[in-house]
Design a binder for these strands. Structure first.
Length: 476
RNA sequence: CGGGGCGUAGCGCAGCUCGGUUAGCGCGCAUGCUUCGGGAGCAUGAGGUCCCCGGUUCAAAUCCGGGCGCCCCGACCA
């Protein structure tokens, strides 16, 4: 039934790219490592943007736009930042046919150019906080790329805030992490675990990085969003100070936070199946498609008339399309919309017309149901809600089934071989042990829980004391 | 950067080993008719720098040399 899509059990990577191709979400571009986001993929991004942007505004943020070119000298001002990003930057050396006096970095992230501006905008505590977000593209010259998950250029949002106190910055960082968690769970129907990154994994230039981690269907972890407490690092690098109420000059406290088009990859790998894309109703570009079935022009006219009558009640309640194309047959359409992940398909033919019913098919379960044409609108709305919930429940159930607790390194290594998934383990808190773990098993410490359950134990590798467990997994 | 695979019609491929008519096949595309409840059938038709450069030869998609590009897998990263 799913011609052209490799089964997940055969080859997970190929399945992933097949789903994207079958749903016409993206295409490879003439430029290595870059992708073209096609209308179907972009529509999902627009839905994500709409949901997130609303939440950003509700928490007091405003949008702005900063340039994509950053003077080299700016990039070099924060030591850890430049060290972290320099290897993966694209640099413009020529413009207008002439060599530039100073090379321009194509932004891999915008902290530096934004803080160069904040320096001018901030003098007094009265100027704080600044709560700016921008929707933009960024470029990171990755060695290996995968559609949506890691491309040389990608789209994202980056919030950059400035605060008078460390406490306020920390509260902001945590608040935005919570926004991401809510978005992932409520819109994407993707359960996530919030936490803190280890020193080793934190953002270049941050004091502390928070993240949300999700489990993909192959048991691997995917970092779905990050929120950084930047402390005073950028304020010091760019000499951004303000006068307190008491008249004292202090460096400003900063945060930054972002999610990217990678979320689309996360969405695919959380819900989709061997028949193609599955999209939760809240992010589906098209929520319901009605496929009319007819023989001959008379039936066609009758069916379409009834379909339009029914659909008149749907406006403003959910998005829909009546697929009245005459050049494709119903079976072909069923398949196409299935691959595209449309949550609900309705079928209506002559028999249904005679019986005053329609056939409804759920994308998530494949269940067919014959519905009266009375109260159809309410039934569709309720089913969309049910699909949203079912997708979340399934994803959560999958994660729980694939989350393990282990105490010894031998057991960990053995189980990781056979069951990829999340592992809660004891760790002694050192970077050396973390690096050894990664070198020996390819798994990484994904996060330290926000509010860890105190559980004194011994590091599974070194046997040194550990106050609580951390989350370890192979990751994208 | 290492390992593997591959460049021939829009897409997927055969042909290459062993050089030889006008380079094929499937899907898709165009037109027409019949169809239409899970990827329709028939007929007709359009569509090619055989990745590039050089060499060998009467003759190269095919042999030789060099180059470029893409995909997959690993080391780094959202």
């Amino acid at each position: 039934m799913a011609k052209g899509i490799t089964k997940r059990s055969e080859d997970y990577s190929r399945w992933y790219t097949d789903v994207i191709a079958a749903a016409k979400m993206a295409d490879y571009s003439p430029v290595r490592g870059c992708m073209v986001i096609r209308p179907t993929g972009y529509a999902i991004w627009e839905k994500m943007q709409a949901g997130l942007d609303k939440m950003f505004k509700e928490t007091g943020h405003v949008n702005a736009y900063f340039p994509c070119f950053i003077p080299e000298s700016f990039m070099k001002k924060e030591a850890e930042h430049v060290e972290g990003f320099a290897p993966e930057c694209a640099i413009v050396t020529h413009g207008g046919g002439k060599k530039l006096d100073e090379p321009l970095y194509v932004r891999p992230t915008s902290e530096t150019i934004i803080w160069s501006m904040y320096k001018n905008w901030i003098q007094s505590h009265r100027d704080l906080p600044i709560l700016i977000n921008q929707w933009a593209n960024v470029v990171r010259w990755e060695m290996r790329t995968r559609l949506f998950l890691r491309t040389t250029e990608f789209l994202w949002q980056e919030g950059h805030t400035a605060h008078a106190t460390a406490e306020e910055a920390e509260a902001e960082t945590r608040q935005m992490l919570e926004v991401y968690r809510t978005f992932a769970e409520e819109y994407m129907a993707m359960p996530v675990i919030p936490g803190i990154k280890t020193e080793n994994e934190k953002f270049a230039g941050a004091e502390r990085t928070y993240c949300i981690e999700a489990m993909m269907q192959d048991g691997k972890a995917l970092q779905a969003g990050t929120s950084h407490n930047l402390g005073q690092n950028f304020a010091k690098a760019f000499d951004v100070t303000y006068q307190t109420e008491a008249g004292v000059r202090e460096h400003v406290w900063a945060t930054s936070w972002g999610v990217s088009t990678r979320l689309i990859g996360a969405l695919i790998m959380t819900h989709s199946d061997d028949n193609g894309l599955v999209v939760p109703p809240k992010l589906a570009p098209l929520q319901t498609v009605l496929v009319p079935i007819w023989r001959g022009d008379d039936e066609r006219a009758q069916i379409l008339e009834r379909a339009n009558q029914l659909a008149a009640d749907w406006k403003g309640k959910f998005s829909y399309k009546i697929d009245d194309r005459d050049n494709y047959r119903p079976g072909w359409k069923f398949n196409e919309w299935e691959k595209a992940g449309v949550p609900i398909r309705l079928e209506m033919g002559p028999k249904d017309l005679a019986n005053n019913v329609v056939v409804m098919v759920r994308r998530d379960t494949g269940e067919k149901e014959i519905l009266s044409q009375e109260n159809l609108t309410a039934k569709i709305s309720a089913t969309l809600d049910a699909i949203q919930k079912n997708l979340y429940d399934n994803a959560l159930d999958f994660r729980e089934k694939n989350t393990h607790t282990v105490d010894t390194y031998d057991e960990f290594k053995e189980r990781l071989e056979n069951e990829s998934g999340f592992y809660w383990v004891h760790w002694d808190g050192t970077t050396e042990t973390e690096q050894r773990l990664q070198a020996e098993t390819k798994a990484t410490i994904r996060l330290i829980p926000l509010a860890p359950e105190p559980e004194p134990g011994k590091c599974m590798i070194t046997g040194k004391p550990s106050p609580h467990r951390v989350l370890v997994a192979k990751a994208y």
